[in-house]
Computed example of a mutant assay.
Amino acid sequence: MREHDTYGPATMRRGRRKFDDDESDFLKRGRLEPALQEDPDRPEVGDNWSSWDGALHGPEPRPDWVRTEHAAVDSELGVLKTGKEADVYLVRRWLPATGQSSMIAAKRYRDGEHRMFHRDAGYLEGRRVRRSREMRAMSNRTSFGKELIAGQWAAAEFDALGRLWQVGQESGLIRVPYPVQLLGTEVMLEFVGDWETGEAAPRLAQVRAEAEQLDDLWAQMADALSVLARAQVAHGDLSPYNTLVHDGRLVLIDLPQIVDVVANPRGAEFIARDVTNVANWFRARGVAVDAEGLIERLLFEAGLR
């Protein structure tokens, strides 16, 4: 047996091992600083610095109210909406030096362990990612795959809002919230409502309107559906509950499941379902609606007829 392989008193150093804090002047030269109670990088006011830097930004030209300054801060004001796929928070982004501010809806998609994915399959048909490993993960609904899907939904909504917002600026036939930025699985978009009180615009389902206004809102809905069809997409989940009414205008929201009606083999079905969902609501309130005729027109405009 080699000498250094022996275990026992002969190989152990007698006495107590000496540590750094045995030095008599340890307390003088090694005193620990008290723990910081606050993050030194946090702003003096607001909750956090603006997350604009490093995010993907909305289309240009941007509205004047969009705060792009590095000195801006974000203050979270409360929850606007909770859902199975995402929660929406009201955020004020403002410049402490000038008081200039904007009101933003921060839509935060749930992570792979907390989202409901039972509806994903039909909407995701026609969407592709480049790597086969990622496609397999998404198809098998692994934890990694669910995270990819969450990211896809956020990116799809951000892209759709950007395209439709630009079309709306040019044509005036469709209105959606301006997409401010995309960072991970969080989409920040224009808050549609009263910026002074923080009260969100009502959903179409909550509106109590006279016959003339209902006729006008149906005409706006038909125009918006036509814009979508000519872009060869369908909302995918259109209803009176994800359409807002603000200053007499319809505003389409909740677009993560937007469907490419050409690439998706069920594209025509999604167009018909969107029309039927909203047409039934208007018809129940006395509006003369030709849903079948509108569906045929939209299918033609989308190139499916």
Results as ranks from 00 to 15, higher is better:
Glu269Trp: 10
Pro177Met: 04
Ala219Asp: 12
Ser50Asp: 03
Ser24Cys: 13
Trp195Phe: 05
Leu250Ser: 11
Arg266Asp: 11
Ala156Asn: 14
Lys28Leu: 14
Val233Glu: 02
Glu147Lys: 06
Arg230Lys: 10
Glu269Thr: 05
Gly58Lys: 04
Arg17Leu: 11
Gly58Ile: 11
Arg130Asn: 11
Arg249Ile: 00
Ala72Asp: 05
Ala201Glu: 06
Glu44Ile: 05
Val91Glu: 00
Arg42Tyr: 08
Ser75Tyr: 04
Gln152Phe: 12
Glu33Tyr: 13
Pro9Gln: 14
Arg297Met: 07
Gly83Lys: 13
Gly162Phe: 01
Arg13Val: 10
Pro179Thr: 12
Ile149Glu: 02
Gln220Pro: 15
Ala279Gln: 04
Ala272Ser: 13
Tyr7Arg: 10
Val287Lys: 08
Gln37Ala: 06
Glu38Pro: 05
Asp254His: 03
Gly162Leu: 00
Trp218Asn: 02
Val207Leu: 11
Met221Leu: 10
Asp87Glu: 08
Gly303Phe: 00
Asp247Trp: 00
Glu23Tyr: 09
Glu38Gln: 13
Asp216Pro: 10
Val287Cys: 05
Glu196Asp: 15
Glu196Val: 14
Arg230Val: 04
Arg273Gly: 01
Gln206Ile: 02
Glu33Pro: 08
Arg285His: 12
Val66Phe: 01
Glu125Pro: 00
Arg141Met: 15
Met221His: 07
Leu244Phe: 15
Arg208Met: 05
Phe117Ala: 05
Leu244Asn: 09
Tyr123Arg: 03
Asp159Lys: 04
Leu294Met: 09
Asp20Met: 11
Leu161Lys: 05
Asp290Arg: 06
Leu148Ala: 13
Lys81Ile: 00
Asp41Leu: 13
Ser75His: 08
His114Ser: 06
Arg110Pro: 04
Arg266Glu: 10
Leu255Ser: 02
Arg283Gln: 12
His235Ala: 05
Asp247Tyr: 03
Arg29Val: 12
Ser171Leu: 07
Arg16Pro: 02
Arg130Glu: 12
Arg67Trp: 01
Val287Ile: 08
Ala288Gly: 08
Lys146His: 07
Leu124His: 01
Glu157Cys: 02
Ser239Thr: 09
Glu125Val: 07
Met1Gly: 15
Gly30Arg: 15
Asp215Pro: 01
Glu210Phe: 09
Trp94Phe: 07
Leu252Asn: 08
Lys146Ile: 12
Tyr89Met: 09
Leu299Ile: 05
Glu170His: 14
Val275Lys: 02
Ala284Asp: 07
Ala160Gln: 03
Pro61Leu: 12
Trp165Phe: 09
Arg13Ala: 03
Gly172Val: 09
Arg115His: 08
Pro61Asp: 11
Leu252Met: 10
Arg163Ser: 09
Ala155Asn: 09
Val176Met: 07
Pro9Cys: 03
Ala72Lys: 02
Arg230Glu: 08
Leu80Gln: 14
Asp22Pro: 02
Ser101Gly: 06
Thr11Glu: 15
Glu44Tyr: 03
His246Cys: 09
Gln181Cys: 06
Gly248Trp: 09
Glu190Gly: 05
Gly58Glu: 05
Gly303Lys: 11
Leu173Thr: 09
Ala209Pro: 01
Ala160Tyr: 06
